[in-house]
């Protein structure tokens, strides 16, 4: 990536932009701003920013429309800004292809971390990670080995598939629906009870303490997220 990463903030609340702009600039982003769905799509098409911060409540329509349109031709990272209680909206956004979400109000540090994870993932999509270490767990996707402190953990093929799917999206949230479609197939997208059972089994095997998961985190009502990897790995 050459030069500064360019971020597009899509929000029609001037107050939000007012504090986001200095914060983003301080983190080395070049900031552009759009207020409507149309402007946002136009900007993404012409300027190809490195990341989009998208507020879902826009004056001229639904922010989800931006994701829908953009995802037909681009896989650039999109982070959604949404109110905490609007689970349905967040799930819909993620299912449409948003990379992650941040609940409003948020601390800028958290937003920056999510943005980094989303951008890193975009790079990983091109070269699959050979290995990921998270919460003391080493996952080697190529050799299909999972170890904790050198000891190998035996996983069933389904469990491994589930784990690698989460690892591939490390640092980002994936919805129940996305996991089910990828691991069990499109016919099972509403069978969330499978998922609960498998996640439970997986946690029993891989977590140091299954009742305080460090590797697979639950995003209540939305899906799961695997830690972005221990900082030392970067």
């Amino acid at each position: 990536m050459s030069g500064k990463p360019r971020a597009l903030v899509v929000d029609d609340e001037p107050a939000i932009l007012r504090f986001l702009k200095p914060a983003l600039e301080a983190n080395g982003y070049e900031v552009a701003h759009a207020e409507t769905v149309t402007d946002a799509v136009k900007h993404i098409a012409s300027q190809a920013p490195d990341i989009v911060l998208l507020d879902l409540g826009l004056a001229d329509g639904d922010g989800k429309e931006v994701i829908r349109q953009v995802r037909s031709w681009s896989d650039l990272p999109i982070v959604v800004l949404s109110a905490r209680e609007r689970e349905a909206e967040k799930i819909a956004s993620l299912d449409l292809g948003a990379d992650d979400y941040v609940n409003k109000p948020f601390a800028t540090g958290e937003l920056m971390a999510r943005m980094r994870a989303a951008m890193r993932h975009r790079m990983q999509r091109h070269d699959e990670p050979a290995a990921l270490t998270v919460g003391g767990l080493e996952i080697d996707a190529v050799r299909r080995r999972v170890t904790r402190g050198g000891a190998e953990i035996k996983l069933t093929p389904k469990e491994f598939e589930l784990l690698t799917f989460l690892v591939r999206h490390a640092g980002r949230v994936v919805t129940h629906r996305q996991i089910l479609a990828a691991v069990w197939g499109p016919a099972h997208t509403s069978d969330t009870q499978y998922l609960r059972v498998y996640i439970g089994q997986l946690r029993q095997k891989i977590e140091a303490r299954a009742d305080e998961p460090q590797v697979i985190l639950t995003e209540p009502g939305i899906g799961y997220r695997i830690g972005a990897g221990d900082e030392t790995q970067r």
């Binding site: 007012r18 983190n27 601390a107």
Partner: peptide, 22 residues
């Protein structure tokens, strides 16, 4: 309420976290 709160929280955390860069 959330929009001004986001603004306040965002501004305050920006200053706290990245104050030296702003």
């Amino acid at each position: 309420f959330r929009t001004p709160l986001s603004s306040i929280l965002g501004s305050a955390t920006s200053l706290l976290t990245y104050g030296d860069k702003i």
